[in-house]
Design a binder for these strands. Structure first.
Length: 407
DNA sequence: TCTGGGGTCCTAGGACCC
DNA sequence: TCTGGGGTCCTAGGACCC
């Protein structure tokens, strides 16, 4: 049986949810992301905002310059997840095999549904109507024989798109795309391709597998060789299990204050460890990330003999790593704490898990976690004591929209 | 223009072992 | 003096995606 895959992609998802929730924002250039006075970027924006040249990942300051009359809103991830879950539930009426790949995207394996539902295009139209009725949101659907092509197809006709790559028309379709449209080819690779004089899909296709591997590396070369021939490289096929967890913080003003860095690291250590415990995971590789004022970014890591037992332990290791890298007088822009090599807790034999001390701390923290998740407020005494967080003084973004940026 | 935060996967070199 | 090959683990950095 011919495989039949739908890729469903919500258009300008965050902005559309805000516009659906707040009718007064409909038709307005809505820009979701950091506060316009701050150092963040645009997470998402409405099509109205795109007309001003605003796009996601753009520094928020630049967005404000281009579109000062825009409606600037903070990210409400929980709300988007809620809406997303409702949409995903609706998909279940159409396919038993749904693979959600992000908050606003999913693959539906529709293989063998034609006898039940009729032509794929009609089914796609019904899915679009169904989502619109449920949420008032507009989506795009791409149809093809594999995931890679279906994803490109949904992008091809956005917004409110419906596009099918018919069997036999794969290469024709690919040849209409720009190299930058191919999933997995980013700005750096594009730059290198131009250096080699490659500027179109057919040109890229003319290179042998060996040449591509030589030019771009084994994996990337192989990937390009496949995709450009309409063969799914399989990158989206496997369900990925979580392998790392991290948290990071950008200071509103670069800091040389080691105490301030320690305080953020303490907070991040707890945050990351809580998430790890909540998902009943553990890991043994601790990574500290530092970004300096000139944007150079370094990481240092330490793989422990045992899986991490507590946030205290994590913080201790992170501090040791900072000790290794700390340079007096060098201003720090961002710090991050990560845990890699993450595995389910049950797969770790309890007996050899922790030294007694760590086990005790772990239990205390588990208790704190359970209170926290019931809505209680507990803070580490050390956090309250050493409350030297100059950056937090200006206040975190709360509910509602941001005011105008301070001059 | 002045660049978030959360991830995944790949590469390359070194250490160590058989 | 010239010097293997494979495997695994670790580290640091980089590209890319949403």
């Amino acid at each position: 049986m011919e495989p039949l895959i739908f890729h469903v992609d919500m258009d300008a998802f965050y902005a559309s949810v805000e516009q659906a929730d707040r009718p007064e924002y409909r038709g307005a250039p809505v820009i979701i992301g950091a506060s316009p006075g701050g150092r963040g970027v645009v997470s998402a924006c409405s099509y109205e905002a795109r007309r001003y040249g605003v796009h996601s990942a753009m520094p928020i300051s630049e967005a404000y310059r281009r579109c000062p009359q825009g409606v600037y809103l903070p990210v409400r991830m929980e709300r988007y997840q809620e809406v997303s879950a409702r949409i995903m539930e609706r998909f279940q009426a159409f396919s038993p095999d749904i693979q959600q790949i992000s908050v606003d995207e999913a693959f539906l394996d529709m293989t063998g549904t034609e006898r039940l539902f009729g032509p794929p295009e009609d089914t796609a139209r019904r899915i679009k109507e169904c989502v619109y009725e449920e949420t008032g949101l507009v989506i795009s659907i791409g149809i093809a024989a594999n995931k890679f092509l279906a994803k490109l197809a949904s992008d091809f006709d956005k917004p409110d798109g419906l596009f099918r790559v018919r069997p036999g028309e794969e290469l024709q379709f690919l040849d209409r795309l720009d190299l930058k449209d191919l999933w997995g080819i980013g700005s750096k690779t594009l730059e290198r391709m131009h250096e080699y004089g490659i500027s179109s899909v057919p040109q890229l296709r003319s290179f042998s597998r060996e040449t591509l591997r030589g030019l771009f590396g084994q994996a990337a070369g192989e990937y390009m060789y496949s995709t450009v021939r309409g063969i799914d490289p399989g990158i989206l096929a496997k369900e990925t299990k979580s392998r790392s967890l991290s948290g990071e913080h950008t200071f509103p003003v670069d800091t040389r204050d080691r105490e301030a860095v320690h305080n953020v690291l303490l907070e991040l250590s707890h945050e990351v460890m809580f998430r790890l415990m909540k998902e009943e995971l553990s890991g043994r590789t601790v990574v500290l990330k530092l970004r300096y004022d000139d944007f150079t970014t370094i990481t240092v890591r330490n793989s422990l003999r045992h899986p991490l037992g507590s946030a205290e332990e994590l913080y201790r290791v992170v501090r040791e790593l900072l000790q290794q890298k700390w340079e007096r007088g060098k201003a720090v822009r961002l710090v991050g704490v990560g845990i890699h090599g993450v595995e389910p807790r049950q797969s770790i034999r309890q007996g050899e898990l922790f030294a007694d001390e760590e086990e005790k701390k772990s239990k205390v923290e588990q208790t704190v976690l359970s209170i926290k998740s019931k809505g209680g407020k507990i803070q580490k005494a050390s956090l309250l004591r050493g409350a030297r967080r100059p950056d937090k003084a200006s206040g975190e973004a709360g509910e509602g929209d941001f005011g105008p940026p301070s001059p």
